[in-house]
């Protein structure tokens, strides 16, 4: 990546950061809602006096906060531009689509970490949590690797608003809902009806959760004892699956985006806004 491409990547980070600042009241509202929702879910474990359940729910809400925000910000990036009416100006800039979508994804990742930090800080207020003994570094690695696969999914979903701004945004939300359901965020996948379980194999969140639960030490947790998080090597199969998904989904997402852009330029669909 040369200096010009770095500046172009920075353009998207700069733009999204400025927009986040201008819409700060919505940022506060969404962060508040995410925190309240996370605390409500996690308190179910506290009410059951079950520390293992509390930890399972905690890691679920944190991971889902991260992945859902990442996916949503990337998937909705084109819809936002259509609503603002700026899509044509972005598309006629001499930045490659890779640089464009990389810049959007980079900011989405930073924003996702911010949201997780807010939720985590809030959870400490509501619940007596201790992560002592958990492999937090390993969890960070899993988050970063799983980000690649979610970026790929986000890129594919980002094309939907090119076809139809409203329907595309609706479809993105449905897709996000399906990921939440099938990935076993708050429960093991095995409790899902048999017919839907194979769908969970296609979701990167399934493997990210499986790895994070092991790294957290939830599976080996003994009440009254500190956590014993597994070493990173123990989750290598999950990490490899996530890496392969990322390596496949990002180029596939870029390819689909390129085809949809070509179609939009052929049919004049870039023009429509709102």
């Amino acid at each position: 990546m040369n200096a010009s491409a770095i500046r172009q990547t920075w353009a998207f980070v700069y733009r999204d950061h400025q927009l986040t600042k201008r819409y700060w009241s919505w940022v506060v509202v969404f962060a508040f809602y995410a925190l309240v929702n996370s605390a409500s879910v996690t308190l179910i474990g506290v009410a059951a006096h079950d520390t293992r359940l509390t930890l399972t729910l905690t890691i679920g809400v944190l991971l889902w906060t991260f992945l859902s925000v990442l996916f949503n910000e990337i998937a909705m990036s084109i819809a936002y531009e259509r609503w603002e009416g700026t899509l044509e100006y972005t598309f006629m800039a001499p930045a490659s689509r890779f640089v464009h979508l990389f810049g959007v994804s980079l900011y989405a990742m930073l924003y996702s970490f911010f949201r997780v930090a807010v939720v985590l800080a809030g959870l400490f207020v509501f619940i007596d949590l201790s992560f002592r003994g958990a492999n937090l570094f390993g969890i960070l690695i899993v988050l970063l690797v799983s980000s690649l696969a979610f970026m790929g999914l986000g890129l594919i979903a980002a094309t939907l608003p090119v076809f139809s701004p409203e329907r595309g945004a609706e479809a993105t939300n449905i897709l996000q809902g399906v990921l939440l359901l099938v990935s076993g965020i708050y429960y093991p996948v095995s409790v899902l009806p048999k017919w839907i379980q194979p769908v969970s194999w296609l979701s990167p969140a399934t493997y990210a959760l499986s790895a994070c639960r092991k790294l957290m030490g939830i599976e080996t947790f003994v009440p009254g004892q500190p956590l014993h998080g597994a070493p990173l090597l123990a989750v290598m199969p999950d990490l490899l699956r996530l890496l392969i998904m990322g390596i496949v989904l990002i180029p596939v997402g870029l390819w689909i985006f390129g085809r949809v852009e070509h179609w939009a330029k052929k049919t004049g669909k870039l023009k429509r806004t709102g």
Partner: peptide, 19 residues
Amino acid sequence: FYKKLSARENLLYTAFLYG
């Protein structure tokens, strides 16, 4: 334009986009 952003912010975004 991004109507919530200032002229400075909109123009800087364009400038960065063009390197």
